[in-house]
Design a protein around this nucleic acid. Structure first.
Length: 427
RNA sequence: GGAAGCGUAUCGAAGUGGUCAUAACGGGCCUGACUCGAAAUCAGGUAGCCCGCAAGGGCUCGUGGGUUCGAAUCCCACCGCUUCCGCCA
């Protein structure tokens, strides 16, 4: 949620920033301003009546105590009650309208984020080089099936298209990656969290998934109640809600969390056919990092998160590209996003394994996460998140980049202590 | 799943229909005094949000409704927590 005060003061700036995302929401901004003015006018009227009501209500017991007749003032009170009720209803209606409109606005991109869509993304740096192979390469689906690492057929049997089974060395590698990531993060002083996977509506609201992107998550309906839960699409949704409605003591900032969870996504309408194997599925494992920071220190945290995610990919020895996303390609809730994209040889394409973003105060406003600053005033915290990392994209990259002519896959050095083997060979 | 109880500031807790909700009382924390310093003691201070240029005003006793001129207080629903019983990884 963007700051209504900022929108009120600089509506043209808000409009221009949203345009960088290739969205034209001028009419929404204008409507917010209209509703805002109406609401404030109405509030002025109603609050004056409430003031009268309050003072009258104090007079009644005094009059009664001194034996006087309070019937006249009580009649006026009755009148006021009706008027106030009516006025309050109007305010509530305007407020709801305004909130709905405000929620439909995306976060404003940072000034240095370029305008435009995906095609305007900028490469920040490359790590390593594209591996060269002196033999015809296999894609990760073929490699994983041959090595008995992934069972796509039975995954689909169990849960439909977009689901797979890790087995044998596949399961071992998956587990090794997760442990490797978690160990690295713990070394860096992040607190390890295992959150619930079924979350309440409010979590999705704060993270920015709801009300706009309700279709992208799996909802859980309780047959005997009307409470809605949903399967988290990323651990960020949980982590960003830990301090909802809290005032975090400033000395505890920055808060650094990591969580491991599977991520559950409907991927409705995705072009699955182009993305074979485990590139896009309904469930994938990810270790997620989240930081809460003071509002003038989130840039430092952002650099830290990007650096950490990069380091993991580097330690795995994978060729990747770091991209700074253009405004239109940043997530709805984010002011800036950098993607780490790993090279998938068979697709000849870089695929995202980590996305690091700074939401600034956008999520904290929705979740009312604050701290008292050095200036003794209340500030909204900043929230940032980065994957560290998503394994379902890492395994294809590993097996493809580390494949050998005989169909075996060399295990990246950092994973060997976790797996206890150097090369995964066909049976 | 059954039964009972509870939800008031930073914490504990009083208030059970009005005229002490910034809110009794106690603890914590901050400032000052005393002290070489500390402890103890004493004095003072310790919400957030919204409207308004300001003066000032409004809102918040878990949440939402209702009764009433007036609700922390009475009624209803919901949410959360605790305890006991049952079931259980």
């Amino acid at each position: 949620m963007i700051d209504i005060k900022y929108l009120r003061e600089k509506p043209e700036e808000v409009k221009a920033k949203i345009k960088k995302r290739e969205m034209d929401l001028d009419s929404v901004v204008d409507e917010i301003l209209t509703v805002d003015a109406q609401k404030r006018e109405q509030m002025g009227k109603v609050e004056a009546m409430k003031a009268e009501q309050n003072s009258a209500s104090k007079q009644i017991p005094q009059i009664k105590k001194s034996g006087g007749d309070a019937s006249e003032i009580m009649a006026r009170m009755k009148e006021l009650v009706a008027l106030i009720k009516e006025g309050d209803a109007k305010i509530a209606e305007l407020d709801e309208k305004q909130t709905t409109l405000l929620l439909s606005l995306p976060n404003l991109p940072d000034d240095d984020v370029v305008a435009g869509g995906k095609e305007q993304n900028q490469e920040v740096r490359l790590f390593g080089t594209k591996p060269e192979f002196a033999f015809p390469i296999k894609n990760h689906v073929e490699l994983c099936e041959n090595l008995g690492m992934i069972d796509y057929q039975r995954g689909a049997k169990l849960a439909g298209a977009g689901s797979w089974l890790y087995r044998g060395w596949g399961a071992r590698m998956e587990w090794a990656l997760l442990n490797f990531f978690i160990d690295e993060h713990i070394k860096d002083g992040f607190e390890f969290i295992l959150p619930p996977h079924m979350l309440g509506y409010q979590c999705g609201y704060v993270a920015g998934q709801f009300p706009k992107f309700t279709d992208e998550v799996y909802r859980i309906e309780n047959p005997t109640g009307n409470d809605m839960r949903f399967m988290l699409p990323t651990a960020e949704t949980a982590l960003v809600n830990i301090h909802r409605d809290e005032i975090i003591p400033i000395e505890e900032l920055p808060k650094k969390y990591i969580a491991y969870t599977p991520c559950y996504r409907r991927e409705a309408g995705s072009y699955r056919s182009e993305e074979r194997g485990m590139i896009r599925g309904h469930q994938f494992n990810k270790v997620e990092m989240v930081q809460y920071t003071e509002d003038d220190k989130s840039d430092i945290a952002f650099e830290e998160l990007v650096g950490k995610a990069e380091r993991l990919v580097q330690e795995l020895g994978l060729h990747y590209r770091l991209s700074k996303l253009a405004a239109g390609d940043c997530s709805f809730s984010m002011a800036r996003t950098y993607d780490i994209e790993v090279w998938i040889p068979s697709m000849e394409i870089y695929k995202e394994v980590s996305s690091a973003s700074n939401a600034r105060s956008y999520q904290a406003r929705r979740g009312n996460v604050r701290y008292r600053g050095e200036d003794k005033k209340m500030h909204f915290a900043h929230t940032l998140n980065a994957s560290g990392l998503a394994t379902s994209r890492v395994i294809p990259a590993i097996v493809e980049q580390y494949q050998n002519e005989d169909g075996s896959v060399t295990v990246p050095e950092v994973l060997r202590p976790y797996m206890g083997i150097d090369v995964i060979k066909p049976e």
